[in-house]
């Protein structure tokens, strides 16, 4: 298939899956409400210090990280859902690259995570009175989208790993809060114990968030964005490789259709 066709496949698949996600009120509401509880709790802790800078530091991070709650809780369940629909085998049996089909579903999930970002931004503006005025608005927005995208790529890796290892389904939820902590959204990475810091450096959202903060402060964000791009590409490549491997394994072990 040509590049144009593949792009069209991703676009159509993204649109239709988004349409389906919107038809579940429960998912839509929970995706906004659940991370908002955690964000609000964190912001109330920071507000207690009376330090406005700390509060806006946390508000920026909280807004971005809410996407991860949507992605981590849904991405690893995508395969489970396709299995339940009975469409997983059809996706595999189709000539379109399987990883592309899954990626477009993850993109749809990540898109719905955007509502939580908007809700958290509005929440911190009107409830906590935090005015976010990034020094460089355009690079700020770019870095924000980049960070969100890297969450999508992590979700993609989780989703394809779940083809073969169904326990990943539960792992997705367990990875939610660790990333809230590890990537410098609410707590500066420098404050983390030394054994945890290298792990943070290996996670693309850490660099994305650094870029967001740099743009907010009017500092150069390009080095951070470079590291973001490199690490994100590595994760994407890993996910494509995992997808090919698990599919081969699923054909051998007959694990596709198990509900």
């Amino acid at each position: 298939m040509s590049a144009g066709r593949l792009l069209r496949l991703v676009a159509v698949s993204w649109y239709l899956h988004l349409k389906m996600l919107h038809r579940s009120m429960f998912d839509s509401v929970m995706q906004v409400v659940w991370p908002l509880f955690f964000a609000t709790t964190a912001l109330l802790v920071y507000r207690a210090t009376g330090d406005r800078d700390a509060l806006s530091y946390a508000a920026t991070g909280a807004a971005v990280v809410t996407v991860w709650s949507a992605v981590s809780s849904n991405a690893s369940g995508i395969l489970q859902r396709e299995r339940a629909f009975g469409t997983l085998e059809l996706l595999v049996a189709a000539p379109a690259p399987f990883s592309l089909s899954i990626m477009s579903i993850v993109l749809a999930v990540t898109t719905t995570g955007g509502y939580a970002v908007a809700a958290t931004l509005l929440w911190s503006r009107f409830v906590f009175g935090v005015h976010l005025a990034p020094a460089w608005p355009l690079p700020f927005a770019l870095a924000l989208v980049a960070t969100v995208f890297s969450f999508g790529v992590l979700g993609f890796l989780l989703a394809v790993a779940a083809v073969r290892y169904r326990a990943v389904f539960a792992l997705g939820g367990a990875l939610e809060l660790p990333l809230w902590l590890a990537c410098g959204f609410l707590v500066p990475v420098a404050l983390l114990p030394s054994w945890l810091r290298p792990l943070s450096w290996l996670l693309p959202p850490t660099w994305g968030m650094q870029a967001v903060r740099a743009a907010a402060a009017g500092q150069s964000l390009w080095a951070d964005l470079g590291l973001w791009a490199g690490s994100t590409a590595a994760y994407a490549a890993a996910a494509v490789w995992v997808a090919a491997t698990v599919l081969r394994s699923a054909r051998r072990h007959a694990t596709l259709s198990l509900t």
Partner: peptide, 13 residues
Amino acid sequence: YVFGGDRGLYDRL
């Protein structure tokens, strides 16, 4: 490839 039963379609679409 077509199989029988209720599954294999997106009900919400």
